[in-house]
Protein backbone atom coordinates (compact mmCIF):
# COMPACT_ATOMS: atom_id res chain seq x y z
CA UNK A 1 0.00 0.00 0.00
CA UNK A 2 1.33 3.46 -0.82
CA UNK A 3 2.24 5.91 1.94
CA UNK A 4 -0.08 8.88 1.72
CA UNK A 5 1.29 12.34 2.39
CA UNK A 6 -1.81 13.87 3.97
CA UNK A 7 -4.91 12.52 5.68
CA UNK A 8 -7.06 14.22 3.03
CA UNK A 9 -5.29 12.34 0.23
CA UNK A 10 -5.31 9.13 2.28
CA UNK A 11 -9.05 9.38 2.90
CA UNK A 12 -9.71 9.79 -0.83
CA UNK A 13 -7.29 7.22 -2.23
CA UNK A 14 -6.97 4.48 0.37
CA UNK A 15 -10.26 2.67 -0.46
CA UNK A 16 -9.48 2.60 -4.19
CA UNK A 17 -5.86 1.57 -3.55
CA UNK A 18 -7.12 -1.37 -1.45
CA UNK A 19 -9.51 -2.51 -4.16
CA UNK A 20 -6.91 -2.22 -6.91
CA UNK A 21 -4.47 -4.26 -4.78
CA UNK A 22 -7.09 -6.98 -4.38
CA UNK A 23 -7.74 -7.12 -8.13
CA UNK A 24 -4.02 -7.25 -8.90
CA UNK A 25 -3.57 -10.05 -6.38
CA UNK A 26 -6.40 -12.10 -7.92
CA UNK A 27 -4.86 -11.58 -11.35
CA UNK A 28 -1.33 -12.46 -10.23
CA UNK A 29 -2.57 -15.64 -8.60
CA UNK A 30 -4.27 -16.60 -11.87
CA UNK A 31 -7.64 -16.75 -10.18
CA UNK A 32 -9.36 -14.37 -12.56
CA UNK A 33 -10.61 -16.88 -15.06
CA UNK A 34 -14.30 -16.24 -14.43
CA UNK A 35 -16.16 -14.28 -17.01
CA UNK A 36 -16.29 -10.65 -15.97
CA UNK A 37 -19.68 -9.05 -15.40
CA UNK A 38 -20.73 -6.27 -17.76
CA UNK A 39 -18.57 -3.39 -16.53
CA UNK A 40 -19.62 -0.76 -19.04
CA UNK A 41 -21.88 1.15 -16.63
CA UNK A 42 -19.33 1.46 -13.79
CA UNK A 43 -16.68 2.34 -16.39
CA UNK A 44 -18.89 5.08 -17.85
CA UNK A 45 -19.39 6.41 -14.31
CA UNK A 46 -15.58 6.55 -13.89
CA UNK A 47 -15.26 8.25 -17.28
CA UNK A 48 -17.85 10.89 -16.35
CA UNK A 49 -16.05 11.54 -13.05
CA UNK A 50 -12.76 11.86 -14.97
CA UNK A 51 -14.29 14.35 -17.41
CA UNK A 52 -15.48 16.41 -14.45
CA UNK A 53 -12.03 16.30 -12.84
CA UNK A 54 -10.40 17.40 -16.08
CA UNK A 55 -12.84 20.31 -16.36
CA UNK A 56 -12.35 21.36 -12.72
CA UNK A 57 -8.56 20.96 -13.02
CA UNK A 58 -8.40 23.07 -16.18
CA UNK A 59 -10.62 25.77 -14.63
CA UNK A 60 -8.41 25.93 -11.55
CA UNK A 61 -5.17 26.37 -13.45
CA UNK A 62 -6.75 29.00 -15.69
CA UNK A 63 -7.22 31.32 -12.71
CA UNK A 64 -4.08 30.57 -10.72
CA UNK A 65 -0.94 32.71 -10.58
CA UNK A 66 1.05 29.66 -9.49
CA UNK A 67 3.18 28.87 -12.54
CA UNK A 68 4.31 25.49 -11.18
CA UNK A 69 0.69 24.43 -10.70
CA UNK A 70 -0.02 25.48 -14.30
CA UNK A 71 2.84 23.27 -15.51
CA UNK A 72 2.30 20.23 -13.28
CA UNK A 73 -1.47 19.82 -13.60
CA UNK A 74 -1.83 18.89 -17.33
CA UNK A 75 0.39 15.72 -17.20
CA UNK A 76 -1.58 14.41 -14.20
CA UNK A 77 -4.90 15.13 -15.94
CA UNK A 78 -3.63 13.43 -19.08
CA UNK A 79 -2.66 10.33 -17.10
CA UNK A 80 -6.16 10.10 -15.63
CA UNK A 81 -7.79 10.62 -19.03
CA UNK A 82 -5.60 8.01 -20.77
CA UNK A 83 -6.36 5.53 -18.00
CA UNK A 84 -10.10 6.12 -18.33
CA UNK A 85 -9.81 5.43 -22.07
CA UNK A 86 -7.97 2.22 -21.21
CA UNK A 87 -10.90 1.17 -19.03
CA UNK A 88 -13.29 1.70 -21.94
CA UNK A 89 -11.07 -0.51 -24.13
CA UNK A 90 -11.04 -3.09 -21.32
CA UNK A 91 -14.81 -3.18 -21.23
CA UNK A 92 -14.98 -3.67 -25.02
CA UNK A 93 -12.50 -6.57 -24.85
CA UNK A 94 -14.22 -8.12 -21.86
CA UNK A 95 -17.59 -7.99 -23.61
CA UNK A 96 -16.09 -10.19 -26.37
CA UNK A 97 -14.88 -12.62 -23.69
CA UNK A 98 -18.37 -12.68 -22.17
CA UNK A 99 -19.63 -14.41 -25.30
CA UNK A 100 -17.30 -17.40 -24.93
CA UNK A 101 -18.91 -20.73 -24.37
CA UNK A 102 -15.97 -22.58 -22.83
CA UNK A 103 -14.27 -22.23 -19.44
CA UNK A 104 -11.08 -21.14 -21.14
CA UNK A 105 -10.39 -17.43 -21.28
CA UNK A 106 -10.15 -15.82 -24.73
CA UNK A 107 -7.14 -13.65 -25.70
CA UNK A 108 -9.53 -10.69 -25.54
CA UNK A 109 -10.45 -11.69 -22.00
CA UNK A 110 -6.79 -11.77 -20.99
CA UNK A 111 -6.05 -8.45 -22.69
CA UNK A 112 -9.20 -6.91 -21.19
CA UNK A 113 -8.12 -7.91 -17.68
CA UNK A 114 -4.68 -6.42 -18.22
CA UNK A 115 -6.20 -3.17 -19.43
CA UNK A 116 -8.66 -3.13 -16.54
CA UNK A 117 -5.81 -3.41 -14.06
CA UNK A 118 -3.58 -0.93 -15.90
CA UNK A 119 -6.47 1.53 -16.26
CA UNK A 120 -7.47 1.27 -12.59
CA UNK A 121 -3.86 1.67 -11.50
CA UNK A 122 -3.45 4.63 -13.85
CA UNK A 123 -6.56 6.32 -12.46
CA UNK A 124 -5.21 5.81 -8.94
CA UNK A 125 -1.75 7.08 -9.87
CA UNK A 126 -3.01 10.03 -11.93
CA UNK A 127 -5.47 11.12 -9.24
CA UNK A 128 -2.71 10.77 -6.65
CA UNK A 129 -0.36 12.88 -8.81
CA UNK A 130 -3.02 15.53 -9.22
CA UNK A 131 -3.79 15.68 -5.50
CA UNK A 132 -0.06 15.97 -4.78
CA UNK A 133 0.31 18.76 -7.34
CA UNK A 134 -2.45 20.70 -5.58
CA UNK A 135 -1.01 19.84 -2.19
CA UNK A 136 2.37 21.22 -3.27
CA UNK A 137 0.60 24.40 -4.39
CA UNK A 138 -0.92 24.67 -0.92
CA UNK A 139 2.55 24.23 0.61
CA UNK A 140 3.88 27.03 -1.63
CA UNK A 141 1.01 29.24 -0.42
CA UNK A 142 1.99 28.63 3.23
CA UNK A 143 5.69 29.16 2.41
CA UNK A 144 4.80 32.50 0.85
CA UNK A 145 3.14 33.61 4.09
CA UNK A 146 6.27 32.39 5.95
CA UNK A 147 8.54 34.48 3.71
CA UNK A 148 6.31 37.55 4.07
CA UNK A 149 6.49 37.33 7.87
CA UNK A 150 10.24 36.68 7.77
CA UNK A 151 10.82 39.62 5.41
CA UNK A 152 8.70 41.89 7.58
CA UNK A 153 10.99 41.21 10.55
CA UNK A 154 13.60 43.41 8.82
CA UNK A 155 11.32 46.38 9.47
CA UNK A 156 12.12 46.03 13.18
CA UNK A 157 15.44 47.79 12.55
CA UNK A 158 13.67 51.00 11.54
CA UNK A 159 11.41 51.12 14.60
CA UNK A 160 12.58 54.28 16.39
CA UNK A 161 9.47 55.63 18.07
CA UNK A 162 6.33 54.48 19.84
CA UNK A 163 4.27 55.14 16.72
CA UNK A 164 6.60 52.93 14.62
CA UNK A 165 6.36 50.23 17.24
CA UNK A 166 2.55 50.29 17.17
CA UNK A 167 2.55 50.05 13.35
CA UNK A 168 5.12 47.23 13.48
CA UNK A 169 3.13 45.18 15.99
CA UNK A 170 -0.16 45.85 14.17
CA UNK A 171 1.36 44.63 10.91
CA UNK A 172 3.26 41.66 12.33
CA UNK A 173 0.38 40.25 14.37
CA UNK A 174 -2.02 39.33 11.49
CA UNK A 175 0.84 37.68 9.59
CA UNK A 176 1.95 35.54 12.51
CA UNK A 177 -1.65 34.69 13.44
CA UNK A 178 -2.37 33.58 9.86
CA UNK A 179 0.88 31.61 9.78
CA UNK A 180 0.11 29.87 13.09
CA UNK A 181 -3.37 28.95 11.84
CA UNK A 182 -2.04 27.63 8.53
CA UNK A 183 0.67 25.57 10.25
CA UNK A 184 -1.91 24.24 12.74
CA UNK A 185 -4.22 23.17 9.91
CA UNK A 186 -1.32 21.62 8.01
CA UNK A 187 -0.23 19.67 11.08
CA UNK A 188 -3.77 18.27 11.47
CA UNK A 189 -3.58 16.97 7.88
CA UNK A 190 -0.04 15.53 7.70
CA UNK A 191 0.36 11.78 8.15
CA UNK A 192 4.03 11.88 9.20
CA UNK A 193 3.94 12.54 12.94
CA UNK A 194 7.67 13.40 13.10
CA UNK A 195 7.03 16.28 10.71
CA UNK A 196 4.01 17.36 12.75
CA UNK A 197 6.06 17.38 15.97
CA UNK A 198 8.91 19.35 14.35
CA UNK A 199 6.58 21.91 12.74
CA UNK A 200 4.65 22.38 15.99
CA UNK A 201 7.86 22.91 17.93
CA UNK A 202 9.19 25.49 15.47
CA UNK A 203 5.90 27.38 15.38
CA UNK A 204 5.69 27.36 19.19
CA UNK A 205 9.16 28.87 19.31
CA UNK A 206 8.19 31.62 16.87
CA UNK A 207 5.19 32.44 19.06
CA UNK A 208 7.37 32.38 22.20
CA UNK A 209 10.00 34.75 20.73
CA UNK A 210 7.57 37.44 19.55
CA UNK A 211 6.90 39.02 23.00
CA UNK A 212 10.70 39.18 23.49
CA UNK A 213 11.12 40.95 20.17
CA UNK A 214 8.43 43.49 21.06
CA UNK A 215 10.00 44.09 24.49
CA UNK A 216 13.41 44.66 22.90
CA UNK A 217 11.88 47.16 20.46
CA UNK A 218 10.14 48.92 23.33
CA UNK A 219 13.45 49.10 25.21
CA UNK A 220 15.13 50.55 22.12
CA UNK A 221 12.38 53.18 21.70
CA UNK A 222 12.84 54.19 25.35
CA UNK A 223 16.59 54.60 24.88
CA UNK A 224 16.56 56.03 21.36
CA UNK A 225 17.94 59.41 22.49
CA UNK A 226 20.22 57.91 25.14
CA UNK A 227 23.08 56.03 23.53
CA UNK A 228 24.77 53.72 25.97
CA UNK A 229 24.72 50.25 27.40
CA UNK A 230 20.94 50.04 27.71
CA UNK A 231 20.49 50.94 24.07
CA UNK A 232 23.20 48.49 23.00
CA UNK A 233 21.48 45.77 25.00
CA UNK A 234 18.14 46.63 23.38
CA UNK A 235 19.72 46.41 19.90
CA UNK A 236 21.43 43.13 20.82
CA UNK A 237 18.14 41.68 22.02
CA UNK A 238 16.32 42.88 18.92
CA UNK A 239 18.89 41.22 16.68
CA UNK A 240 18.79 38.04 18.75
CA UNK A 241 14.99 37.74 18.53
CA UNK A 242 14.75 38.64 14.84
CA UNK A 243 17.48 36.11 14.03
CA UNK A 244 15.82 33.40 16.11
CA UNK A 245 12.37 33.99 14.61
CA UNK A 246 13.81 34.20 11.11
CA UNK A 247 15.72 30.92 11.55
CA UNK A 248 12.64 29.17 12.95
CA UNK A 249 10.58 30.33 9.95
CA UNK A 250 13.30 29.15 7.56
CA UNK A 251 13.14 25.76 9.24
CA UNK A 252 9.33 25.74 8.97
CA UNK A 253 9.68 26.36 5.22
CA UNK A 254 12.09 23.42 4.95
CA UNK A 255 9.85 21.12 6.99
CA UNK A 256 6.76 22.04 4.96
CA UNK A 257 8.46 20.90 1.79
CA UNK A 258 9.34 17.43 3.06
CA UNK A 259 7.32 14.51 1.78
CA UNK A 260 5.86 11.87 4.08
CA UNK A 261 8.80 9.48 3.62
CA UNK A 262 11.51 12.09 4.37
CA UNK A 263 12.02 10.94 7.94
CA UNK A 264 15.80 11.15 7.89
CA UNK A 265 15.60 14.88 7.16
CA UNK A 266 13.42 15.82 10.11
CA UNK A 267 16.36 16.61 12.41
Amino acid sequence: MPVFHTKTIQMILEPVAEQVSTLVLIHEQGKDGNQMPDLINPILTVKAAVSNLVKVGKDQIKDTKDEILKLDTPPALEKVETSADMLVQASQLLSIDQKRETAEMTPEGMEGRKKLIAGSRGILQGTSDLLLVFDEAEVRRICKVCRNVRDYLNQSSIVAGMEDLVVFVKSLTPGTTTLARMIGDRCKDLTNQNHVAALTEEMDQVKAYIPGLISSLKAFVQTVDKPGKAQEAAIGNREYYTTQISERITEIIRLLQLVSTDDANTD
Binding site: T8, I12, L13, P15, V16, Q19, V20, T22, L23, I26, K31, D32, G33, N34, Q35, M36, P37, L39, P42, I43, T45, V46, A48, A49, V50, N52, L53, V56, G57, D59, Q60, V80, L87, L116, S120, I123, L124, T127, L130, L131, F134
Partner: peptide, 29 residues
Protein backbone atom coordinates in the same frame (compact mmCIF):
# COMPACT_ATOMS: atom_id res chain seq x y z
CA UNK B 1 -12.02 22.10 -2.60
CA UNK B 2 -13.48 21.46 -6.06
CA UNK B 3 -10.49 19.34 -6.97
CA UNK B 4 -10.90 17.30 -3.79
CA UNK B 5 -14.60 16.73 -4.52
CA UNK B 6 -13.85 15.73 -8.13
CA UNK B 7 -11.07 13.38 -6.98
CA UNK B 8 -13.44 11.84 -4.40
CA UNK B 9 -15.97 11.11 -7.16
CA UNK B 10 -13.32 9.37 -9.26
CA UNK B 11 -12.09 7.37 -6.29
CA UNK B 12 -15.63 6.28 -5.41
CA UNK B 13 -16.45 5.32 -9.00
CA UNK B 14 -13.16 3.44 -9.47
CA UNK B 15 -13.59 1.63 -6.15
CA UNK B 16 -17.06 0.46 -7.22
CA UNK B 17 -15.76 -0.69 -10.62
CA UNK B 18 -12.79 -2.63 -9.27
CA UNK B 19 -14.91 -4.12 -6.49
CA UNK B 20 -17.42 -5.40 -9.08
CA UNK B 21 -14.60 -6.92 -11.15
CA UNK B 22 -12.96 -8.55 -8.11
CA UNK B 23 -16.26 -9.90 -6.78
CA UNK B 24 -16.91 -11.79 -10.01
CA UNK B 25 -13.46 -13.38 -9.84
CA UNK B 26 -13.73 -14.29 -6.18
CA UNK B 27 -16.67 -16.54 -6.96
CA UNK B 28 -14.18 -18.79 -8.72
CA UNK B 29 -11.74 -18.94 -5.80
Amino acid sequence: EQILEAAKSIATATTALVKAASAAQKELV
